[in-house]
Design a protein around this nucleic acid. Structure first.
Lengths: 129, 129
DNA sequence: GGATAATGTTAGATAAGGCTAACAATAAAA
DNA sequence: TTTTATTGTTAGCCTTATCTAACATTATCC
């Protein structure tokens, strides 16, 4: 239980967090649309996330993050935000490319590097952050 | 033919390039040891790379990169080098972490971002590059 | 040069992550 | 409140990437 997830699992958590912020119920069809996968794929993925204790869902019910799932999702989202900001503000990468790169990089970067990146960003951008 | 590869395929090409630089014959057992996978896994992966025209190998013979494979491998290696240098020299990430992060990031970053990163690195590091 | 070791290959299994088709349950509309 | 549409679930298949076990081939070493 509660091991780390790979890219796919993290993407699901992140999508659920986003939807949870905008709507009071997270439906699996919305997760499917957000991620561009089929409903059965969501179903299977949610099953795994349930087993690992990141998500809860009753039969035919809506999807909810557990505390662990929420914390995990928040971390991924922060990574995304930080990396994207780094790419746009420091490296001057165009917005949409920065976003899609951040999507992939957020799963590849260690905690140590994330910390260094955050520190650097603060140091360079200062008030403009 | 000659489509792009995913992480695994790129890792194989990169390993082959490295071995090719250090030894005159690239054997699949060495690729296996380099990447920490089994010989059959290498065998199968090489089969795919052959189909895609990145590698050639005769039955029971040694592994060689095609021109396409070489160019591809060089690009991956350059990404690795650039990202690692960025992490160590700009973000001050510790060497071994920078290396393992670069290993993963090299497959996740767009050409555009690589260009920006290279430019930034030159600009900041100047002569010390 | 023949025994032994190392390497390459094949076959078949497993796991993750995706899909479609079909059915079940719920929600929406008439 | 039926009918219809949408959504959730299940079953079964595909692909990728890995593995082990077994066998084939090549190298190495007396």
């Amino acid at each position: 239980m509660n091991e780390g997830l790979h890219q796919a699992g993290e993407d699901y958590l992140e999508a659920i967090l986003q939807l949870q912020k905008n709507y009071d119920e997270v439906r699996s069809v919305d997760v499917a649309n957000t991620l561009g996968v089929s409903r059965p794929s969501v179903n299977k993925a949610i099953g795994v996330l349930k087993e690992k204790g990141f998500v809860k869902q009753e039969h035919y019910g809506s999807i909810k993050l557990t505390d662990d799932g929420y914390n995990y999702a928040i971390e991924i989202m922060q990574r995304h935000t930080t990396i994207k900001r780094f790419l746009t503000d420091i490296l001057k990468v165009e917005n949409s490319i920065a976003d899609s790169d951040a999507c992939k990089m957020e799963h590849a970067v260690s905690r140590e590097t994330m910390l260094s990146m955050t520190k650097y960003l603060k140091q360079i951008m200062g008030e403009n952050l």
